[in-house]
Amino acid sequence: MSTVALGLYNVCKSFGGLKASNNINIEVLEHEIYGIIGPNGAGKTTLFNLITGVIAPTSGTIRIYDKDITNLAPDKICGVGIARTFQNIRLFNAVSVLENLMIACQQTIHYSALDGCLRTPRFRREEKAAQEKCMAILEKFNLLQYKDVAAGKLPYGSQRRVEIMRAIMTNPRVVLLDEPAAGMNEEETATLAEMIRMLQKEYNLTIVVIDHHMDLIMEICDRLTVINFGEQLMTGTPEQAQSDQKVIDAYLGVDDE
């Protein structure tokens, strides 16, 4: 049996009267690519916000490997090994692509402010190492020619890729991707699927993907969870989801009797 990389146990979150997450139980295994799907407003992004500490759960426990991260601050949770991208891209727009990635190298660069102000050998060594790491991933993503361009000026698809790279640069164990294929056509989505698989292998990651592109989810995910109105409808393989009556009803919309 393989280890659980990310676990949500009886997680609930209410916004006033609205139950955005109602008793969610998910165990994502190490090195899995895991899907989270559901109609608009189902509570998918809310789950990512709960995991990354952006909002606190009303009740329940969240673990990464053996560590309870339920009430940790977002910057601490990053240190534990969770990275994410955002549904509505959040880059450091005015800053170059390379610097966006350098900023994410918090775990690679440890020198003090004094080292920085005096440009000590330690500063030079760690900056060089971080820069090499960033250049390597830029090359892998074919974005090397954009390294000095302000991130906000890139086309939409490239911005999404920069955000994924930035997540990787934090040395995560688990990466959460919130609608990485949003706004992409079929061809771009196929390339993205390829890239997500490559990343998983290359960096030994566990990946959780939210997306509305069913072909992407069905193709890359080992298992998935379907959510509707904050409720966990089912958890299983993509094939099981496709033949599950409750899931079909949720997507097609069935009148309550």
Binding site: T52, V54, A73, D75, L91, F92, Q106, Q107, A167, M169
Partner: peptide, 9 residues
């Protein structure tokens, strides 16, 4: 972007 800054640690 304060939120992004937080999530990169």
């Amino acid at each position: 972007n304060e939120m992004a800054a937080l999530t990169v640690g």
